Amino acid sequence: MPGEEINSFIKVWLLVLTSLCYSHAIAKTVPKGTKRLAVLLPVVCLFLLLPLQLNSPHLGGLTAFFIAWLANFKLLLFALDRGPLNTHLSLPLFIALACLPIKIRQNPSSKTHLNKGISSSSSMTVNYAVKGLLLGIIVWAYDYIDYMHPYVVKLLYCLHIYFFLEIVLAVGAAVVRSFSGLELEPQFNEPFLSTSLQDFWGRRWNLMVTSILRPTVYEPTLRFSSGVIGRKWAPLPSVFSTFLVSGVMHELMFYYLGRMSPTGEMTLFFLIHGFCLAVEIGLKKALRGWWQPPWVVTGPLTVGFVLGTGFWLFIPQFSRCKADARAFEEYAELGAWLKECLGFCWKSKRS
Score class of each variant (00 low, 15 high):
residue 2 P to V: 00
residue 4 E to S: 13
residue 6 I to M: 04
residue 10 I to W: 05
residue 10 I to D: 00
residue 11 K to R: 11
residue 11 K to Y: 01
residue 16 V to I: 07
residue 19 S to P: 00
residue 20 L to H: 04
residue 22 Y to K: 01
residue 27 A to H: 08
residue 32 K to G: 14
residue 33 G to P: 05
residue 35 K to R: 13
residue 46 L to M: 13
residue 50 L to C: 05
residue 77 L to Y: 06
residue 89 L to S: 12
residue 97 L to E: 07
residue 107 N to T: 13
residue 121 S to N: 08
residue 124 M to G: 01
residue 126 V to G: 03
residue 128 Y to M: 14
residue 129 A to H: 02
residue 129 A to P: 01
residue 130 V to G: 05
residue 130 V to P: 02
residue 135 L to H: 06
residue 140 W to T: 02
residue 141 A to K: 04
residue 142 Y to H: 10
residue 146 D to A: 15
residue 152 V to N: 03
residue 157 Y to N: 04
residue 160 H to S: 06
residue 163 F to V: 00
residue 164 F to P: 00
residue 174 A to Q: 07
residue 181 G to S: 00
residue 182 L to P: 01
residue 191 P to W: 00
residue 192 F to K: 01
residue 196 S to H: 03
residue 203 R to V: 00
residue 203 R to M: 03
residue 205 W to V: 04
residue 212 I to P: 03
residue 212 I to S: 14
residue 213 L to A: 09
residue 216 T to N: 05
residue 220 P to T: 00
residue 222 L to N: 14
residue 223 R to S: 15
residue 224 F to G: 07
residue 227 G to C: 11
residue 232 K to W: 08
residue 236 L to D: 12
residue 239 V to G: 07
residue 248 V to I: 15
residue 249 M to G: 02
residue 252 L to I: 15
residue 259 R to N: 13
residue 261 S to E: 10
residue 264 G to E: 12
residue 273 H to N: 15
residue 277 L to M: 15
residue 278 A to D: 10
residue 283 L to A: 13
residue 284 K to Y: 12
residue 289 G to E: 09
residue 294 P to F: 09
residue 295 W to K: 11
residue 295 W to G: 10
residue 297 V to L: 12
residue 304 G to E: 09
residue 305 F to M: 13
residue 311 F to M: 15
residue 314 F to R: 10
residue 327 A to G: 04
residue 330 E to D: 14
residue 342 L to K: 06
residue 342 L to A: 09
residue 343 G to S: 02
